[in-house]
């Protein structure tokens, strides 16, 4: 690949490609990511649709929050089981709302660790119809307790 074909002006996502340089030599060049620059909107569009679709399924009681996060983070039951440290059979049960209630707090915390989410996110969805607020969940030293901070965004 010629150097000029590789060059993409996109500072938000930089990477290194190996190219044929102007003098005919081969070597690395730091450039922007072509796919992120041109297709990131499509990625977020699909991701958002998926969040809406599976969010509705949780609310309708068709799936558990564990199924929701597992699908969003592109894990399989067997991979998730290995990460949480329980059997795949047990994970498959936890994907169903009726078995979600049988989870122990310890298991739930381990799921949260894998998904990198605070514990309350397993039980709630935070929505707002205001555009000028910023909502953030903050961890505390107590693993069972977090702070939900709502800030007015700067105008």
């Amino acid at each position: 690949m010629k150097e000029k074909e590789a060059t993409v002006d996109y500072k938000e996502h930089q990477l290194v490609l190996y190219v044929e340089k102007k003098d005919g030599s081969y070597g690395p060049v730091r450039t922007g990511s072509y796919i992120t620059k041109n297709y990131i909107d499509d990625f977020w569009y699909k991701r958002n649709n998926m969040e809406v679709e599976y969010g509705e399924k949780i609310r309708a009681g068709e799936i558990s929050p564990i199924a929701y996060y597992m699908i969003l983070e592109e894990l399989t039951p067997s991979e998730l089981a290995a990460r949480v440290g329980i059997s795949a059979r047990k994970v498959k049960r936890h994907l169903m709302p009726r078995h979600f209630g049988t989870l122990t707090l310890d298991e739930l915390m381990r799921y949260c660790g894998v998904f990198n989410i605070p514990l309350p996110n397993m039980f709630q969805e935070i929505v707002t119809d205001k555009k000028n607020v910023k909502i953030g969940m903050e961890k505390t030293d107590n693993p069972f307790f977090s702070v939900l901070r709502i800030r007015a965004a700067r105008k």
């Binding site: 690949m1 490609l17 081969y26 796919i35």
Partner: peptide
């Protein structure tokens, strides 16, 4: 391309 290959699946 993007997942740390240097382009074209390490071929470059």
């Amino acid at each position: 391309e993007d997942q740390g290959t240097g382009g074209a699946g390490f071929r470059f």
